[in-house]
Design a protein around this nucleic acid. Sequence first.
DNA 1: AGAGCTTTGTGTCAATTTTACACTATGCCA
DNA 2: TGGCATAGTGTAAAATTGACACAAAGCTCT
Lengths: 251, 251
Amino acid sequence: MHHIQKKIGSELNPNVSVDCVIFGFDLEQLTVLLIDRGEIPSGSGPRMALPGNLIYDNENLDQAANRVLAELTGLENIYLEQVGAFGDPDRIHKESDREWLKSIRAEPEARVITVAYFSLVQMAHYKPQASSFAKNADWIPVNEIKELAFDHFEILQAAKEKLKQKIKIQPIGFNLLPEKFTLSQLHRLYESILDKPLDKRNFRRKIQKLDILSSLREKQKGVPHKPSLLYEFNEEKYQELTQTGFDNFGF
Amino acid sequence: MHHIQKKIGSELNPNVSVDCVIFGFDLEQLTVLLIDRGEIPSGSGPRMALPGNLIYDNENLDQAANRVLAELTGLENIYLEQVGAFGDPDRIHKESDREWLKSIRAEPEARVITVAYFSLVQMAHYKPQASSFAKNADWIPVNEIKELAFDHFEILQAAKEKLKQKIKIQPIGFNLLPEKFTLSQLHRLYESILDKPLDKRNFRRKIQKLDILSSLREKQKGVPHKPSLLYEFNEEKYQELTQTGFDNFGF
DNA sequence: AGAGCTTTGTGTCAATTTTACACTATGCCA
DNA sequence: TGGCATAGTGTAAAATTGACACAAAGCTCT
């Protein structure tokens, strides 16, 4: 991202990049923040790609991922987790990709391995930054994504799977919801991530039994139907729960 | 590993290495194959390290991990799974580490990120290769490992955790056992990996209900107690099981 | 004001799974 | 033959899961 000033005394490492799968939830379905690389000169490859960049030699991988995220979204201190490293020697092959890579200061001929992360953000908090990328960034429902540039589709699949496994073990889903949310929204979220229907009553029962939600004395307003009670995630109660060795939400 | 001939047309990538956490099971506890780097000139750091090496520019990460594994153990086609990428810019700091790195052709000053894998091998299959490393390689019980060179201890922890999670979802433990094994051995294995006691009768019931073992009409011999029946893992039955969408062993 | 629409919120019962727990059987060894 | 060590087995109570249907609340439209 050429608008970012190069840090003094640091160099881009030509061999290692990070890519971020930034998940959001529009209260209906799971979405991912993708970048439209625009019309590509000679290429016919997919236009959409995950945000990412080369790392600097003086930052660690987590820092690099946080940086990429912040440059694009302006968000800091958000949930971020490594998915893994990807990198076939021939992962870059299209002429169009080379052009693109030059634009982010990568050397098109270099063999690059990329470390993928996924992050969970509240879509409402997202404010596109004035970077060259953010202009072309957009939330796309995961289920509508059929292909991506480079090996990004493969990375997306791995990120979805990791998220799926992780949410069975930790209640990280709250990072995707507003502070105040309804049980129905939480229900939809779990269905989206686990990619299967969950019985409404059984879901509610299970969640309530965990006792990690605070019920607010507050209702939805302005909805054209019976308004729902609002809830908040209760970090303290969750900490108590984990201290008992609990690590299985049973989904 | 300087005894390995450099592949024609390939170069070592100075920025990316792989490290392998090679798990074994001595029928009592979980062990890891570590390399003793020997007396270190000026250093006081830990002598033991995970096997690993830089990657070649013409191999992918999985291939590199398989290569490291084969160079050390002579084993091929064994269970291997990525743990993740590690790499603080300052992960190498000791003078002694620099000497060591030179010996594996790494550039001591370069910033290296490493991609960690874990693999599961039958200890009985392990035959040390005639490499400079294998002479000093040895199986160490995981619970006795208190420190390792570089950031390898952190990697080991991550590998243990990954193995723990994975075995709750897939019956990969069989890779650590001989073809024929007893239920008690399997029981001990699960206890070692999950790091908690499991009730004997409940464990046996659960495993048997899965119906992925073939009972052999054969008993242990030469043991100074009642001999146990021997079992084999039944790959076909496991495939049937997974085709029902099964992905939770309930541990 | 009332009818209709949409989503919320709730309980029970049967089936399954989990947990806790102790004694007999078998083969080796001394 | 007695002692030792581990294998192998069953049950009952408690907890969890899965399937399932209808009344309540607020909005909208007429």
